[in-house]
Design a protein around this nucleic acid. Structure first.
Lengths: 150, 150
DNA sequence: GTTGAAAGACACCATCC
DNA sequence: GGATGGTGTCTTTCAAC
């Protein structure tokens, strides 16, 4: 699929406010609304635009703790781990990685003590290395390479 | 701020489709639309609902590589690293962590070779440990503790 | 918290360049 | 590929309860 600068700008604007109407979006990219609507529908059907969602402040919901846990599975018990991580709540993400460990997991929890439950749960088939989040850095995240377009 | 089950359900529904109209949202939570609108405005102004955004498939934009990089800053050159990570493109996130290393960074890149540029750039003031993502696991991410509500 | 009404915004379609 | 104009629907908002 060919994605031009206009598509990228549409993605950028929707990433900043996904509730923008096609009309308003059209204004901002200096296009007519049928054209913009068609581009958005195409981005959706091609799967580039996977979905419309919100950003939630989990701290305000009582989840004050974030941590990364590196998991090293023992004795090839990957299926066991996959089943476990699929069901465990409060997992923001889990990636299979190439490197010193097998998986990197991020959890959002209400309190530090909740880390223990996770670690104890995997302990019979995997070892862990925990990193508690202190703060988050500001980053640019310029995936759309839009710097010069806006 | 008091957040009840209805608020959580609203957050859940908006996280699945942030373009839902207040009318449609009202239907789904069995409330009138003025009530839902008021709740959404409250969630916004309290900062629980931080913003409306989209999910983008970066692979379809040519970013085929994801990796985690643990960064250990040498000789207390934290300001240098903070300035660097603030400007470097393609950083999905960067967290200051308590544990064996100083920071954990996630990058999204077009090709494996692009990792080298990042590593070389920080090498004068920090050491790195790289993990290339192989796959992503499915997870529940049940932060809203909604299992019984839906 | 609800209902109902009114004004406005919206998406959609046909048509055209 | 893109623009314009008309139509009917949807939506928000407000007042009254």
């Amino acid at each position: 699929m060919k994605i031009d600068d206009l598509d990228k700008k549409i993605l950028y604007l929707l990433s900043k406010d996904s509730r923008l109407s096609m009309r308003e979006l059209a204004k901002r990219v200096h296009l007519s609304s049928p054209s913009v609507t068609e581009r958005v529908r195409r981005l959706e059907s091609e799967g580039v635009l996977k979905g419309y969602t919100i950003e939630i402040d989990y701290k305000k919901l009582g989840f004050d703790v974030e941590c990364f846990i590196e998991v090293t599975v023992r004795n090839g018990q990957y299926i066991k781990f996959n089943n476990f991580i699929n069901e465990y709540p409060f997992v923001e993400f889990c990636y299979r990685i190439a490197g010193k460990t097998c998986y990197i997991v991020k959890l959002r929890l209400k309190k530090i003590a909740d880390i223990e439950h996770f670690i104890n749960s995997v302990n019979s088939f995997a070892s862990t290395e925990t990193y508690v989040v202190i703060s988050k850095n500001e980053t640019k995240s310029d995936y759309l390479e839009l710097e010069e377009l806006i």
